[in-house]
Amino acid sequence: MKNFIFDIDGTLLDTEAMYMKSLQAVLHDRGIEREYDVLAKTFGIPSRDAVIRLKLPDVDGILAEWGPRTQAYRQTVAIYAGVEQALADLKAAGAGLAIMTSKQQYEYDRDVVSTGLDAYFSQAIVAEDIAHGKPEPDGILLAMKRLGAKPADTVYVGDTIYDAEASAAAHVTFGFAAWNGRTPTDFQADVSFITPAAMLDLL
């Protein structure tokens, strides 16, 4: 592989609690109680799609409250161990590195730029850049176009079924970020990376 395109949440950054707990709090204030595990099943897709999939009322109202509410849970976010070193090693080896995320630009700036992770990537595709988010392949295809990459030489590294489906639709290898400690139950990966350093074996 010559090109590595990355998801962010659950792949580079452990952000699940920030998003799900803040959504749970927003719903609680509205008199809506949903179990954390139910909400977490939507983790990894655009926020609007998640709210719609959960069949919640007042989609726009919830979205307006959800984004700002995440700030109260920022302390739960962490870069997964070994990720920064692996990115540095991949970049030094000449791999093309890009991000393709369901995050909006402000979320990318808040979660990625603020940590300095953006320095490892030559391209970043955010929600505003594409018409259709995951599981559609639009974002991966745009990232490949900007990298000058071919599907056969590209792996998309992610952690959810939406990532797996987007990879399949884009005809690229799907690499599961197994370093996050989760075990897939609803999809199969083409390759699983137990540690971030394991990605170097694909070069």
Rank of each mutant, 00 (worst) to 15 (best):
81 A>M: 12
81 A>P: 14
81 A>F: 13
81 A>H: 15
82 G>W: 15
82 G>H: 15
85 Q>V: 04
85 Q>M: 05
86 A>D: 05
87 L>I: 06
88 A>L: 05
88 A>H: 07
89 D>L: 11
91 K>R: 15
92 A>D: 13
93 A>C: 09
94 G>L: 09
96 G>A: 05
96 G>S: 09
98 A>V: 03
98 A>I: 03
99 I>N: 00
100 M>C: 15
101 T>Y: 12
102 S>F: 08
103 K>D: 03
105 Q>Y: 13
106 Y>K: 12
106 Y>G: 02
108 Y>T: 12
110 R>S: 09
111 D>N: 13
111 D>Y: 14
112 V>D: 00
112 V>M: 02
112 V>F: 01
113 V>M: 10
115 T>I: 04
115 T>A: 00
117 L>N: 08
118 D>C: 00
118 D>M: 02
120 Y>D: 06
122 S>M: 10
124 A>W: 13
125 I>T: 01
126 V>Q: 03
127 A>D: 05
128 E>I: 09
129 D>V: 08
129 D>A: 13
130 I>G: 00
130 I>T: 03
131 A>Q: 11
131 A>V: 10
133 G>L: 02
135 P>E: 04
136 E>L: 09
138 D>H: 10
140 I>V: 12
140 I>D: 01
140 I>K: 01
141 L>A: 04
142 L>P: 07
143 A>G: 06
144 M>A: 02
145 K>F: 04
146 R>Q: 14
146 R>A: 02
149 A>Q: 01
150 K>G: 00
150 K>C: 00
153 D>P: 02
155 V>Q: 06
156 Y>Q: 09
157 V>G: 06
158 G>S: 08
158 G>I: 09
158 G>F: 04
159 D>C: 11
160 T>R: 01
160 T>E: 01
161 I>C: 04
161 I>L: 13
163 D>P: 06
163 D>F: 01
164 A>G: 04
165 E>W: 03
165 E>Q: 14
165 E>F: 02
165 E>T: 03
166 A>H: 12
168 A>E: 12
168 A>M: 13
169 A>M: 00
170 A>H: 14
171 H>A: 12
171 H>L: 04
172 V>W: 03
175 G>L: 10
175 G>P: 12
176 F>D: 10
177 A>I: 04
177 A>H: 06
179 W>I: 01
179 W>S: 00
180 N>G: 10
180 N>E: 12
180 N>C: 11
181 G>N: 13
182 R>T: 12
182 R>L: 14
183 T>S: 13
184 P>D: 03
188 Q>T: 15
188 Q>G: 07
188 Q>Y: 04
189 A>D: 03
190 D>G: 14
191 V>G: 05
191 V>W: 05
192 S>H: 10
193 F>P: 01
193 F>D: 01
195 T>H: 12
195 T>S: 13
196 P>F: 00
197 A>F: 03
199 M>R: 06
201 D>R: 14
